[in-house]
Structures are given as structure tokens and as C-alpha cells.
Design a protein around this nucleic acid. Structure first.
Lengths: 218, 218
DNA sequence: TCCTTGTCGAACACCCGTGTACGAGTTAGT
DNA sequence: ACTAACTCGTACACGGGTGTTCGACAAGGA
């Protein structure tokens, strides 16, 4: 685990491969064994145990790794300006990160203590929370529900979209639109009218009918 | 499994106990073993295998049993009148059914084919779907998203509430209110103002502030 | 009553995952 | 080039879950 001296180059390569493999394998199957992870990483099972004392610590490191990657890619998103548009942008780039992390999170939940899970999620959660709070301060988002609840609902809806895509009941290109439309409505102030994408005219069906069944992906 | 002749009385008692025990045990732990289920049922492990050929079939029967119970208790709900109020009533009595079935569903998902899961869920899902469709026809609910999506979002939000309660971050008595407030907002037509519980005045904070952290349960 | 039907515990074989140990071979750093 | 670090495969011990079999025993139904 933690070492004072620097590791050799090939060791660092192995660790990186194992970490990435763990993210990949656990994203497909939350119960992926150490053997499977090692196989995906192109590495012997013993080598894994050489770098991580046990399965739990490996999953911990994998989750931290995935979160760090997500944190990095989310730094590009412009969260200034109208909170609704900012939220739409955030959803646009983060929903499929949530998708990939979904299964990994389940794996972590069955092995790591809840406190650890929350600690790892503190960073990303705060980012969204800040945006929601700003939207409330500006009178755009509702104030009759706790911020934590709203943030959780947003995550929940994104998870649901991911599930629908995995089940081939939702076309991936529609996901961001559906999520944004749902979340923005859920965040709106009671008693106030709202409209999504205030700057962009919507050439899609204005209101009358929607396809009763969403197209499956090609 | 399926038999032509009638079973003996004690056998029926055993089966009922096993079924209920399976629902209970799997609701606590989706990975509950057959031994644990038998222990909860107050029955030997072999007896379980005497009635159900394997774990998967047992889980299938348990899920079907739980759904049947839920279906029964949902028959009391009045779904006529204003769709928003009807939806609120439905949420009020069904959210904690969803809570208990949540873990059981996870167990089923890891053992049963998705087609079987959907088949078992067809009944309850249709009930909600009908209500949502009526709300759309009456101009109360939005028509710019598929009905299936809306129904899924409702389920998703209820699951989220259950998770929050399990994590002691949400007081159970607030769940129904939060869920209804969120779902009704999400279902509202874009561009139209909405208000929850139109008949009931809300003595709680009208709009200004909410406790930043929800009380944990006593 | 009598016989079928269930139930029970113990034991068995099987598979799979975890974590550790050993020895031989390979790679990187200096 | 030499050594320490690393990797690999095999193998082992251990625990735990799944289904099955067996024989003894209890309980329900006709």
C-alpha cells in the first residue's frame, strides 16, 4: 500500500492497468472477482495482491480513481450564467459518467463502509450543490425542498436513464434531453411557470404527441 | 414445483412461511443465502429445496408474492378525480412498498432474466401508466416526454427516498411529501404554473427557507 | 388405523472466491 | 553487469454457498 521509496516503472504501469481494469470490470459486473480484474488488466492475480492488500482496498482505489477522472473532466463545464442552462450543461457532460460509475458504486457499497463512500463523493456532490444553491438564491430553483434532496433526485434520474439505456428502452442520444427536461421541471419553483432551454427554440413536437415507445439504439 | 394433486396442509404452511421469509430476508440482504431464508422461515434448508427446485425459482416466487401483496393493498387507493391528487394518494400508499421491494428486486435482477422481471412488473406498472395517461389527456401532465419515462422517474424518485431513509438522511414521515412535491413538479406541463396539494393549505414554510439538513429519525 | 406426504439433520460432492506461500524467471535502475 | 524490485504460475488452506442423498421421524388425510 503506502510506500516511502518510489516504485519501479513497470510497477506503476501495472498499478495503472489494474486500476483501469477494475473500473472497467466492476462497471460491467459489481461482483467481478479479483481474477477477472487481473485478466482484464492483463496481469496475474498474485500481482494484484502484490499492490492491493485485499479486494476491498482495490475497489476503494478504483472508485477513487474513477471519481478523480470524472472530477477532471467536469472541470471543463461552464457553470456560470443562468443556473438552468448551467445545470443543463452539467447534465449533458456528466450523465454518462454517472452511468459508468453506477455499477462501480454498487460494488463499493457492498464492501466499503458508508462513511467512506460519502467521503469519496464529497467532492463531486459539492460542485452540484453549489450550483443548485446559486439557482435558489437567484429565485430560479425551488426552496421548499432541501438542497440535498434535489441533488439526490438529479442523481437518481440520471441513474434511471442509464438503466433504461442498458435495457435498450431509451436511445442514448435522447438521454440528456430527457434528464434535463425532467430535472429542470422538478427543480422549478411551485407556482411559477417554467420552460426548458429558454434561449433555444424547440423544433421538436411542441406539445401534442410523443412516440409511445422510445426507439432502441441501432 | 407445479403439482396436480393438492398439497398437505403443513406443506402449504411451510411454503407460505418460506415465501414470506424469502421476502423479508432478501429485503434486508439481496444476497441472502437459502440457509438464511430457511432459518428465518423456521424451516430446514432441505425443506426449502423440497418445494423450490433452486434458489432462482425461490426468488422468482418471492418476488411474485411480494408484487401480489402490493397489488392487493394498492386496490384500496382511489385513483379517480384530479390526477394530481390521485397521484399524490398513490404515492402516499405505495412509496414504502417500493422501499421494501427495492432490495428484493436487486436480488431478482441478479438471478432472473430481465424479461421475467418485466413480466412480473407489468401489472403494477400499468396501473400507474393509466393514471399518467389520464392526466395527460386532461391537460394536467406534460406530453413532451414518453409515459414510460415519467413512470420510471416516479419509481426512481421513490427508490431514492428509500435509500435516503435507510441512510438516516431523511425522516420517514417526510418521504411522501418530498416524493409527491418532486414528482408532481416533474410531471407538470412546461410553460404552465403548478402547485401541489391544491386543496390543502400548507402551514409549513411557504417558500423562504428549509432546514439545510433533514432530521434523522428518532 | 394406516399409509402417504412432509420434515429434519447430517453428510456429501462440487464449484468458486479469497488470501498466502514458494520458486523461477524477467525487468528496471545505478 | 549486478542487484533489488517486480511478475508469473502453481499450489495450498480456508470459508461459504449450492444441490443432492439418506434414513429416521412426525403429521396429516382416507
Amino acid at each position: 500500500m503506502t510506500r516511502t521509496a518510489a516504485r519501479r516503472a513497470d510497477a506503476q504501469r501495472s498499478i495503472a492497468a489494474i486500476l483501469q481494469a477494475a473500473v472497467d470490470a466492476l462497471s460491467r459486473d459489481p461482483d467481478a472477482s479479483v481474477s477477472e480484474i487481473a485478466k482484464v488488466a492483463g496481469v496475474g492475480r498474485v500481482t494484484v495482491y502484490g499492490h492491493f492488500p485485499n479486494r476491498a482496498d482495490l475497489i476503494d482505489a478504483a472508485l477513487a480513481h474513477a471519481i478523480a477522472l470524472g472530477h477532471f473532466s467536469l472541470d471543463d463545464v461552464d457553470l456560470t450564467g443562468d443556473p438552468r442552462e448551467a445545470l443543463a450543461r452539467l447534465i449533458d457532460t456528466s450523465w454518462h459518467l454517472v452511468d459508468r460509475s453506477r455499477s462501480l458504486l454498487m460494488a463499493a457499497q457492498s464492501v466499503l463502509p458508508p462513511s467512506r463512500i460519502r467521503a469519496l463523493h464529497a467532492g463531486p456532490a459539492e460542485r452540484v450543490q453549489k450550483l443548485v444553491e446559486r439557482g435558489r438564491d437567484e429565485g430560479v430553483f425551488r426552496t421548499d425542498l432541501p438542497v440535498e434532496w434535489l441533488v439526490g433526485v438529479m442523481h437518481s434520474v440520471m441513474h434511471h436513464a442509464a438503466d433504461e439505456i442498458n435495457a435498450d428502452r431509451l436511445a442514448p442520444e435522447l438521454a440528456a434531453k430527457y434528464i434535463a427536461a425532467t430535472v429542470l421541471a422538478a427543480f422549478s419553483r411551485p407556482g411559477s411557470s417554467w420552460a426548458e432551454d429558454p434561449e433555444e427554440d424547440s423544433p421538436c413536437s411542441t406539445e401534442n404527441e410523443t412516440p409511445s415507445t422510445a426507439r432502441t439504439r441501432p
